[in-house]
Amino acid sequence: MSGEQFEGAGLRTRTGAGIRFEHVNVTYPNGYQGLRDVSLTIEPGEMVAVVGLSGAGKSTLVRTINGLVPITSGEITVGDVSDGGPADGAAAGATYRLSALRGAAQRRLRSEVGMVFQSFNLARRTTVLNNVLVGRLHHTPTWRSLLGAWRADDVELAMQALERVEIVQKAYSNASELSGGQQQRVAIARTLAQQPRVILADEPVASLDPPTSHVVMRDLQRINADLGITVVVNLHFLDLARRYGQRMIGLRAGEVVYDGPAADADESTLEEIYGRSLTAEDVLDAPPAVLE
């Protein structure tokens, strides 16, 4: 019903984009090597969990995909990564090569890639709605964004995004009045308002309590399943990664040490990723039954 109602208003999301890493290295200015020769392909619509110790390169991996961290060598392709190149009419959107992406082209890529942060990254002293509308900035002329004169279409889209994460009642509250879980859902709505082809989540539940963590992870999972958006989420907790990821990528010291179905990862593979036996701190371990 409602799907038909908004059809044609340009509010449909695009299909997910693929991501390919080819021999990617990242070296920080102080000489620290974030990624070492990473090669992998993420198919459109996949939900991938990235795990590893802190400092293993999880954040770096996720942040190279939208150019927040520039790559030192190699290539990352976002968009059509099928081997034969884009098939006629099949390409749902542009394809980007990140090694040479700068300025306006980089901003266009970023507009197609949503990002969820550990600390929510909301502007705390303005309304939830204004925060979600940040996801529309790329498509808004400068004068409109300076005056705060948002297009009605964009406000509608933001409201729909808030409805999707079930927090639309708070649209006119200040972001600072919300709980941590609510703030993270607003942040997810902000990425949805971008109509992204990829959502990156950098430790999205690290600042949340266990029940809320599951709510947020399920939101991401549902977005992936319903909308076909590719989701790459890096997680510290292994049980969350196994439960919500289709595929798991394990990083250790900037190198990929595991890449396969999340369900297949057993204790020994996890110990391989972590380089030590698991402790209670590596799992979130909340009974999910409470949440249903």
Partner: peptide
Amino acid sequence: MSAAPTLVAPGRATTQDRPRKPA
């Protein structure tokens, strides 16, 4: 066409009341 994905979760938009813009 109606099968195309939209942002709106099916059946949810009608159950949630949007708040009115404060004056």
